[in-house]
Simulated assay, not measured.
Amino acid sequence: MKRLRIDLTEELYARVADLARAERTTREKVILDAIQAYVPNRRVAAGAADAFGLWSGQASATRAYIESIRSEWGDEAI
């Protein structure tokens, strides 16, 4: 396990300490639980570098291909 030093406001520190006392655990455990609940629900935003080569696996990116995809939408989408 890695260590991480963080700075908390006085108010946040007091809230973490209150939770730890109420749950009869450590402040570190309260913070670790909070991070473990937060991180899985977050995604790293895709950057521009992730978009390069996006079409490289496609057979064709020509106008004909684009029009064939659009034809699936029907006339109401035009």
Rank of each mutant, 00 (worst) to 15 (best):
S60K: 01
W73C: 10
A14Y: 11
V16L: 15
E67S: 08
D50W: 06
A64S: 11
R27H: 09
A46T: 05
S60G: 00
F52D: 13
R42E: 01
D33A: 05
R24C: 12
E76Q: 07
V30E: 03
Y65E: 10
Y65I: 00
S60T: 00
R24A: 15
A22Q: 14
Q36E: 15
T9V: 07
T26N: 04
Y13C: 14
R21V: 05
I35V: 10
A20H: 03
V44Y: 07
A45N: 09
E28W: 08
Y65V: 02
G57P: 00
L12R: 13
R24Y: 06
S56E: 02
R5G: 15
V16W: 08
Y65S: 10
T26D: 06
R42T: 00
D75W: 04
A77R: 08
I6M: 13
N41I: 00
M1S: 15
K29L: 10
I78E: 03
D18H: 12
I6E: 11
D33T: 07
E72N: 07
A61I: 01
G47P: 03
A61N: 10
L54V: 04
R24T: 10
A22I: 07
E76K: 05
A59G: 02
R27V: 05
R5L: 13
K2S: 15
L8Q: 09
E23D: 15
E10A: 10
I66Q: 08
P40L: 06
I35H: 04
I78C: 14
L19A: 15
R63K: 15
I78M: 11
G53S: 02
Y38A: 08
S68L: 04
I66P: 03
R15M: 08
L54R: 03
R3A: 13
A34K: 01
R43A: 03
T9Y: 13
Y13K: 11
L54W: 03
Q36I: 06
K29H: 05
W55P: 00
I78A: 13
L19E: 12
D75Y: 07
L8V: 10
Q36T: 07
P40I: 04
V30N: 04
R15A: 12
A20N: 02
V16D: 05
T25I: 00
G53V: 01
D75H: 08
E28R: 09
S56I: 02
L12I: 14
E28M: 12
A34I: 02
